[in-house]
Nucleic acid binder design. Structure first.
Lengths: 190, 190
DNA sequence: TACGTGTGGTTGAACTTTCAATACCAGCGC
DNA sequence: GCGCTGGTATTGAAAGTTCAACCACACGTA
């Protein structure tokens, strides 16, 4: 019970610095998106993932994994996006349990309109304030934390995740056309 | 309009690594707290701040600043904490606009019970997976981002924040006694 | 073919957060 | 004192998230 390895003062300092920055930064970015584009960051995230996918559409479960959403959260979020006309659901043709979520032209436009402000916010408050070395380290830190979370009890999950790689079927019915100029979806938009 | 400095592929990689880790990590920590202690991380955060304050109490506005909550969010959260009996509000005696929020003995106990699991989660998934050099850099990264966010339009705020340092009045009516053993509140508990 | 199990996805209720509006009080100028 | 301006805190409604069922279908097995 009392063999807890409490944080030292130095660790405490690191922890607070990290948490504070992380909370402040994401609050800033989220407010920027809500204010300037009327969408929370979570929706932006979903639409970016869709925009990068072949045909600008993904199965719900793939979209959930890509955007780190729980299935339930994604269902609700997609329902809201659909109400906005930014996204559209249709049944998957190979597996009758599944649904394909596709970005609509209006959704792509909304995303394209939101991206410049968002990217600018990220650049100014993340990339411009850190040195190249710090940025390198940040990438490594991110990787280390993420991979650390995929161990332990989750080991089981990690194991059968290895056997995974299918799922690229269906999706053929490509999203509605859209005379857009960006050949790679909205990649680069964060 | 098109002078947006889009992210390069390398920057994209850094951004994704950071965001992924940040989201996964905080989701993990939050779920750990909810599952094992029945409180969201936000509540834990509030109670830690209170536990560290002299007399284990703070004015609502000070608490909001300390925990990075908006005032409205804090009002709602404290209302919930109060319903749980973990916290208690009384009017500030010097300034009749203000309210003092105090940690109750039950609140302190709940915090003390939650801390070991939380600290362990943080240690195992943050401190144990990073090298000392990475941790040093993480602290600097945090500081750089936070201070970068306190410039620009917020410059005004930063200015009058300098003139601030009062606010240590009232608070005398110290929180209910509590035969606890930890002399420094719950500092070290993250 | 029928059954049991597991996956994909949705739903409703409870909870949390945001946003805008409100009430209340302090401090200042007159 | 009186009105003004600004700070402190709360409120209610709307939006978003979590949690625990739940339904429908796929797949393996008998």
């Amino acid at each position: 019970m009392d063999d807890v390895r409490w944080l030292t003062d130095g660790e405490q300092e690191i922890w607070r610095a990290y948490m504070t920055a992380s909370v402040e930064f994401s609050a800033y970015v989220d407010r920027q998106l809500r204010r300037d584009s009327g969408m929370p960051m979570a929706y932006y995230e979903i639409m970016v993932r869709l925009s990068e996918a072949p045909g600008r559409c993904l199965r719900m479960s793939e979209l959930a994994d890509a955007s780190l959403f729980s299935r339930s959260r994604l269902s609700h979020a997609v329902a809201a996006l659909e109400k906005n006309g930014w996204v559209h659901r249709r049944p998957a043709d190979a597996d009758r349990r599944g649904w394909i979520c596709a970005l609509t032209p209006a959704g792509f436009e909304a995303l394209a309109a939101a991206a410049p402000g968002h990217v600018t916010a990220v650049r100014e408050h993340l990339f411009d304030v850190l040195t190249p070395e710090q940025l390198d380290t940040l990438r490594e830190i991110g990787r280390a934390i993420s991979s650390g979370l995929r161990t332990e009890c989750d080991t089981a999950r990690a194991e059968d995740a290895a056997a995974c790689e299918a799922g690229d079927a269906e999706r053929g019915t490509a999203a509605e056309e859209d005379g857009s100029d960006d050949p790679r979806g909205m990649a680069g938009a964060c």
